[in-house]
């Protein structure tokens, strides 16, 4: 700011200060009061309709239900569990079978394929039946019982026990000693002659 500007500014500030007339102030403050009342009144607040109020919860529930439905129908099995297991095993069999066998299998008519599946099921059931139901510890226990009967001279009883053990657990045959094998043969012979 130059000297001239400073002097002029000081001179201007020293002028009498005219003030806004009181009646103008009163009018403006009255307008402001009215304005303040208007500002505090909420603008056209409408009561929301029942649909508007429930719109979001309803649409959320419907969406969730749809999602659960889609997930249920896309992930749950259409066949009962036992049939599904068979179907899965037969399905698994197809790609792992040799090419020619697979082609034959795929070329089978539906009835034949069902028959093959049922045969496969029966064979699986028979396999599971013939499979050992006795654990190794129990086999050892039974064999020890056989030895105890032999030692006490009850040979016939020992043979019967051995025979029933081999029937229940065919793999026990591999664990028999020569004496036990002879005892088993004798018991089998005895049964065949009795029959």
């Amino acid at each position: 700011m130059t000297e001239e500007e400073k002097r002029l500014s000081a001179l201007y500030q020293s002028l009498d200060k005219e003030n806004s007339p009181e009646h103008v102030d009163a009018r403006i403050l009255a307008m402001a009061k009215q304005g303040a009342l208007v500002h505090t009144v909420p603008l056209d607040v409408k009561q929301p309709s029942r649909w508007t109020a429930w719109r979001w919860p309803l649409s959320s529930v419907v969406s969730a239900a749809l999602l659960v439905g889609i997930l249920f129908f896309t992930t749950s099995p259409l066949l009962p569990p036992e049939e599904q297991a068979v179907s899965a095993s037969s399905y698994d069999m197809v790609p792992s079978a040799p090419k020619q066998a697979r082609r034959e299998y795929q070329a089978m008519p539906e009835q034949k394929r069902q028959l093959a599946q049922s045969i496969e099921r029966e064979a699986a059931a028979a396999r599971s039946k013939t499979a050992s139901v006795l654990p190794a510890a129990q086999i050892s226990e039974r064999l020890a019982e056989v030895d105890r009967l032999v030692a006490s001279g009850e040979l016939q009883q020992a043979g019967t026990l051995l025979m029933s053990l081999v029937e229940e657990a065919p793999e026990a045959k591999a664990r028999l000693s020569e004496g036990q094998l002879a005892l088993l043969q004798e018991a089998l012979h005895r049964r065949s002659t009795n029959q």
Binding site: K17, E18, N19, A32, G35, A36, H39
Partner: peptide
Amino acid sequence: YAAGDLQAFCQLYEQHKNPLWRFFVR
């Protein structure tokens, strides 16, 4: 004042009323 506080307007008006008046009359 926009939130409805009249006192705020009164203070605002008090600060600016005379300079604005002089802006016109001078």
